[in-house]
């Protein structure tokens, strides 16, 4: 044993074959290729939650696009008051609503408006928020002041409260697109803030300074270096927002200022089921369950994508 038993320190040298010297700073040519997106994908690939949530989302999107493949009930035509609040029976696995409509068919057809609102609002919010946030963060100064202050004003109005007021005045033109538009009017500042922060930190990195010193124009630096490196948090927020927009739409519809009651949507169905919860819980349970599962899928996807894109979290 080296120098344990001795009070005066002796000079110990390990035999060279125990710790052979490596070439200084050698490139490991056999290493697996990796970069941010590849690493994220590797970590996602091994996550069961990723596969569960993304296949759920794909399935729900499919239902939303092609509802007629899942039920041959054209749902509004065959409402029969004789079946009012009826329980499940053959061909009608989820039972009937108060008006005697097939719950299963309504749940299937209700996917489309919810998804339309969620996807459209998310797209709008991301487009507006990323453009404004990137301009504010990258160019700073006057742009930043104006965009940030205007964003603060919109941010001061809670999304659904603002939407209630606007929808109230737009009573004649309520549809999925106007609901999406109005939700995004109040929700863009969040994406703008996040983009601005990400752009600011990317802007101050050495690779951006190096590119400018190479003669790259500022706009090209923004498009080629800064924006791609700022997208990760935006993707996460967009995924989660999609879920929360669907909840917001349902809340507006429930209050009667969302989609008109003639539109088949989960929010409307839940709202109408309120009065029959005691006698026919299925009328509440199924649309609420479908809505919640959809939202849950987006939230879970957002969660795993966040972990995958954050190298710190992955290392832990």
């Amino acid at each position: 044993m080296p120098n344990n038993d001795s009070r005066s320190p002796e000079h110990y040298v390990a035999p060279l074959d125990e710790t052979p010297l490596l070439v200084i700073d050698k490139v490991d040519e056999n290493a697996k290729p990796s970069n941010l997106w590849l690493d994220a994908w590797r970590s996602l690939r091994h996550s069961p939650i990723f596969w569960i949530s993304s296949s759920m989302i794909l399935f729900i999107l499919f239902v939303g696009l092609f509802p007629f493949l899942f039920t041959n009930e054209p749902p509004n035509n065959k409402c029969d008051l004789d079946n009012s609040n009826g329980g499940p029976e053959a061909g009608h696995p989820f039972g009937f609503t108060k008006l005697g409509c097939d719950v299963f068919a309504r749940v299937v057809y209700g996917a489309q408006p919810s998804l339309t609102v969620g996807i459209t609002a998310t797209l709008l919010v991301v487009i507006v928020g990323v453009i404004l946030g990137a301009l504010a963060g990258f160019y700073g100064g006057f742009f930043d002041t104006i965009i940030s202050r205007v964003g603060d004003m919109f941010f001061a109005i809670p999304v659904v409260l603002g939407a209630i007021v606007l929808m109230q005045t737009l009573s004649g033109t309520r549809n999925a697109l106007t609901v999406a538009l109005i939700l995004s009017i109040f929700a863009w500042p969040q994406v703008a803030r996040i983009t601005r922060g990400a752009v600011l930190s990317a802007k101050n990195s050495d690779y951006v300074t190096a590119s400018i010193a190479l003669g790259v124009t500022r706009f090209r630096v923004l498009m080629r270096h800064v924006l791609p490196n700022s997208l990760a948090p935006v993707i996460v927020v967009a995924t989660v927002s999609l879920g929360t927009f669907i909840v917001a739409e349902a809340t507006l519809s429930y209050l009667g200022v969302g989609l008109p009651s003639s539109v088949m949507s989960w929010g409307n169905d839940i709202s109408q089921a309120q009065s029959s919860i005691r006698t026919a819980p299925q009328t509440l349970l199924y649309p609420a369950g479908a809505l919640s599962l959809t939202v849950l899928s987006f939230l879970m996807l957002g969660d795993v994508v966040r972990d995958a894109l954050d190298p710190k979290a992955r290392a832990r």
Partner: peptide, 17 residues
Amino acid sequence: LLLISVPTFVIGFVLQY
């Protein structure tokens, strides 16, 4: 995650019931 996914009014109905 479940609590965030289920709209408040549904939680309200169910708990009230």
